[in-house]
Nucleic acid binder design. Structure first.
Length: 558
RNA sequence: GCACCCAUAGCUCAACAGGAUAGAGCAACACCCUUCUAAGGUGAAGGUUGGGGGUUCGAGUCCCUCUGGGUGCACCA
């Protein structure tokens, strides 16, 4: 639609004393049936010392143009409706739907962005709450890449800590450790800990040996952590989510980087030693929303706590040379992140831009890994794929596991990504596995319908006369296609993939209305047929690319 | 108790940097498959945008306040 806005801004600037840039800024797309482009005239009232209605009236009488079908002044709004042939031609000739052209138009080519996301504790299979992190992160990666950025996707492996030590302890006599058993082992050892304090002592001994570089203990940790990372990333790989680099937290201990950073922190008067020997950063005055903002960075023996290792890692990321430094983090880490950010600024380092997301809630409350009250991502994936396969079997007479995955996994991603990150997602099986209406399946299904038609088409539709596309359903579809680029840029600007889901549904809905009202093949007018084929081809591209940016695949036949 | 986020139709969500008559889907009701894929389409129904105040020509959107939910509040990661 930008092309139309530019066009209208030129027109209005030509017949008035208004500033062209200001006009362009105020133009908007009104609701359907009010026109194609609207200009609210209220902001010009002050500078012109005239009533908004007068301004709109005058513009309406002066703007006559062979491409304008209707121009109205209503309550201070100037509404312009273009002739549909002009609308179709202008928008479809200029629309940008592919990565190359959008990248070129927005000048972001070659910039680099570091994105860190997911970092699930390496103690069990991920549940759908944690998956939200990966889904948002991966979608942002795709959007940046689509806009021409070079992406560097990192995963911070939290391989230090009591949780891993507990698993090391629980599996000390096991010759083999199986990823799928870890969750139960973790739940069991948490249970045992309640009644056997001596286990806790043993666990901390293991942790201390690990931190002091004991080779056998490091190997034992590595066995657990790598089993977990392998298991977790296999699940994400199944969903098409990958990382470029896995950064191990323990490195900052074993390479004594924590000591160096600690020495830097010691130069600040805000670092003090508590009576028992712990080193603490006094963060009063940093505008952190807790009563007594203190960040404890070491234990009393001066060994590092997670915060210190996280600061080390954050410095590494800030120094990576990337143009932007992003991370996706749960809302439970909000205040903690502010504390790390304040510490980084103290050290002259720049904290990452952070995207926070809220938790996924179950109908009967919150998920808890320790209590085993979770919906595992794996289970969700299996259910979704199975349900999709049933539907495919019913429709096609035979199952198709690959297609079922495309459909089922798409539905998972869509159901989670369609909600804005700051809102809680309410998960229930019925809604998530409903493949009708506002779901990714709707878009995939209509995409397949288009492919089916294009497959059958035996005329060339590469160079067609767009001005033939004048039906209301065609105009509506064309305008929606033309919005693609601004939606992608909106997602980029706000670091929120949700509008893409909304867009792909609106777009598909416009196509479906067009499809049910107009024939594409088998009409006498072959030039019109060609134009319509070109239109649905562009529709398919927009659907495919929008879904792709959400991490969702398409198939040509469904 | 303090801080941050959220509250929109019975349910799940939209509303693009405050714009016009707040839109969809699901569920429920009435229709449409001799026609390019019915995982579809059409119609009707559903709202004092949690309550109250304020700013503005204009507020779901910004500010204050109350209520309800989420999250967090130094020696976990």
């Amino acid at each position: 639609m930008n092309i139309l806005f530019d066009y209208v801004a030129d027109l209005i600037a030509g017949v008035s004393t208004l500033d062209r840039a200001e006009i362009r800024d105020n133009l908007e797309a009104p609701k359907a049936n009010m026109g194609d482009v609207a200009l609210p005239c209220f902001k010009f009232a002050k500078t012109l010392h005239r009533a908004p209605i007068d301004i709109a009236d005058e513009l309406a009488t002066n703007l006559a143009n062979e491409n304008i079908e209707k121009i109205e002044s209503i309550n201070g709004f100037l509404n312009i409706t273009f002739k549909p042939e002009f609308l179709a031609k202008t928008l479809l000739e200029n629309v940008r739907l592919d990565s190359e052209s959008i990248t070129a138009a927005n000048g972001m080519a070659g910039k680099t962005v570091l994105i860190e996301h997911t970092s699930i504790n390496p103690n069990a299979s991920p549940h759908i709450g944690r998956a939200r992190n990966a889904l948002i992160g991966d979608s942002l990666v795709r959007v940046f890449r689509f806009l021409g950025w070079k992406t560097d996707v990192h995963y911070f492996v939290n391989d230090v800590g009591k949780q891993i030590a507990m698993l090391v302890y629980a599996t000390r006599d096991k010759a083999e450790v199986n990823f799928n058993d870890l969750l139960q082992i973790y739940i069991d050892i948490n249970e045992q800990l309640k009644t056997h304090p001596e286990i806790e002592t043993a666990v901390f001994e293991i942790l201390a040996k690990f931190e002091h570089g004991d080779a056998d203990t490091i190997a034992a940790f590595r066995r657990i952590v790598d089993t977990c990372i392998k298991g977790q990333t296999a699940i994400f790989a199944e969903l098409g989510i990958y990382w470029d680099k896995f950064d191990y937290e323990s490195r900052y201990i074993h390479e004594h980087i924590t000591d160096k950073v600690l020495n830097e922190l010691r130069k600040s008067p805000t670092l003090f030693e508590a009576p028992d020997g712990r080193l603490v950063l006094d963060q009063h005055g940093e505008n952190i929303g807790i009563q007594d903002p203190m960040l404890v960075v070491t234990r009393n023996d001066k060994t590092s706590l997670y915060a210190l290792r996280d600061i080390c890692y954050s410095i590494d990321k800030a120094n990576s040379g990337a143009d932007r430094n992003l991370m996706v983090l749960g809302e439970d880490q909000k205040v903690y992140f502010q504390q790390i950010a304040a510490a980084l600024r103290l050290l002259g380092s720049q904290p990452a831009e952070v995207v926070h997301y809220s938790f996924v809630l179950l109908p009967d409350g919150k998920m808890s890994t320790r209590q085993g009250n979770v919906v595992l991502l794996e289970d969700f994936m299996a259910e979704a794929a199975a349900k999709a396969n049933e539907a495919i079997t019913a429709r096609r007479g035979a199952p198709d596991t690959e297609k079922a995955k495309v459909v089922g996994y798409g539905a998972i991603k869509y159901s989670i990504l369609k909600c804005s990150p700051e809102k809680n997602v309410l998960f229930d099986w019925d809604t998530a596995l409903n493949f009708n209406g506002d779901s990714s399946v709707y878009a995939q299904y209509n995409y397949a319908r288009i492919q089916s038609i294009l497959e059958k088409a035996d005329i060339d539709y590469q160079n067609t006369d767009y001005s033939l596309l004048v039906a209301p359903e065609e105009s509506a579809l064309i305008k929606e296609i033309a919005n693609f680029e601004s939606v992608v840029l909106n997602v980029y600007r706000n670091l929120n993939p949700a509008p893409l889901a909304n867009y792909v549904f609106n777009l598909t809905s416009k196509f479906s209305q067009f499809y049910t009202n107009h024939k594409i093949l088998g009409i006498d007018d072959t030039t019109l047929a060609a134009a319509r084929l070109n239109l649905i081809d562009k529709t398919a591209t927009a659907i495919k690319n929008a879904l792709y940016l959400l991490g969702i695949d398409t198939v040509d036949q469904l």
